[in-house]
């Protein structure tokens, strides 16, 4: 199984490396927010170090949700090409076929995240190195779950015309309710209550605490627990669907 996963993983990676446009597909939006929205936030919240430590973790989550959520686009193309079917007619385990793909996206998202953080430094991002590394780990874990579920959705919906609105319909409210641009705590009570049922809001709280280097903050424990739960649940569901839709 490790070999099968590696074969699928390296096949995906080769394709992505040869089409670096995919590297920028997910990152343009967060970069634009960083460049064009970051300076505004600086004025509102005061103190550039503080505002970027709030904004950048939000943009990381946005990047993860967007890149992870839309990973399934790729498998719709692969379905049409016949790649999925020919891989299914091998004795390779279905889980390897899924994990190879998801792990390749996890790596891509990690690279995009590092890029985003590096670009944010000259703007005045001050963050703890250890915290940033732990935050990256959380992001990667979440990516694994999101991409698994997204691939499964791609196999279920089978065409871009239904996949795009479906994914958009889920990712946008999740992103807004997690408070990716501004902490949701600034909002009215009903919004705060609503957002607390969104597990990724807790992920974001943890990411922000990690960026601050506030390792004693309870948000880190809660956020990590929620992230692990979401990742495990989505990965489990994704691989089950992947298995089911391929006899």
């Amino acid at each position: 199984m490790p070999t099968e996963t590696w074969v699928v993983f390296s096949r995906q990676m080769r394709q992505q490396i040869r089409n670096p446009v995919w590297l920028f597909f997910g990152i343009t939006q967060p970069l634009l927010f960083l460049l064009l929205f970051g300076p505004l936030l600086e004025k509102v919240l005061g103190g550039s170090g503080r505002s970027y430590a709030i904004l950048v973790p939000g943009l990381l989550l946005q990047l993860t949700i967007f890149s992870g959520g839309f990973a399934g686009f790729g498998i719709i193309q692969e379905l049409r090409e016949g790649v999925v079917e020919r891989q299914r007619v091998t004795p390779a385990r279905r889980l390897s076929l899924l994990m190879g793909r998801s792990l390749a996206d996890v790596v891509t998202i990690a690279v995009q995240s590092v890029l985003l953080i590096v670009v944010a430094i000259p703007f005045g991002l001050h963050a703890e190195l250890l915290g940033v590394l732990l935050a990256l780990l959380l992001v990667m874990l979440l990516s694994l779950g999101l991409t698994s579920a997204s691939y499964a959705m791609g196999l279920i919906l089978k065409d871009e015309d239904s996949f795009a609105p479906f994914t958009q319909g889920i990712t946008l409210p999740v992103m807004l309710l997690s408070g990716v641009l501004l902490p949701i705590d600034l909002g009215p009570a009903w919004l705060r209550h609503l957002s607390s049922v969104i597990p990724l809001k807790h992920t974001l709280d943890a990411l922000r605490a990690l960026f601050r280097g506030d390792y004693g903050d309870g948000d880190i424990v809660t956020g990590t627990a929620f992230t692990v739960a979401v990742a495990v649940l989505l990965t489990w569901w994704g691989s089950r669907q992947f298995q089911k839709s391929s006899a």
Binding site: V7, S10, Q15, R18, E85, R86, Q87, P91, A92
Partner: peptide, 29 residues
């Protein structure tokens, strides 16, 4: 068994002939 399905849509860029064949063979074990 070997299975050759009906022709699919145009292949994605970034895939090369020998590499694809080797990857397929390795999934076959």
């Amino acid at each position: 068994i070997g299975y050759v399905a009906q022709i699919g849509s145009a292949p994605s860029p970034g895939t090369r002939l020998a590499e694809e064949l080797v990857a397929q063979a390795r999934l076959q074990g």
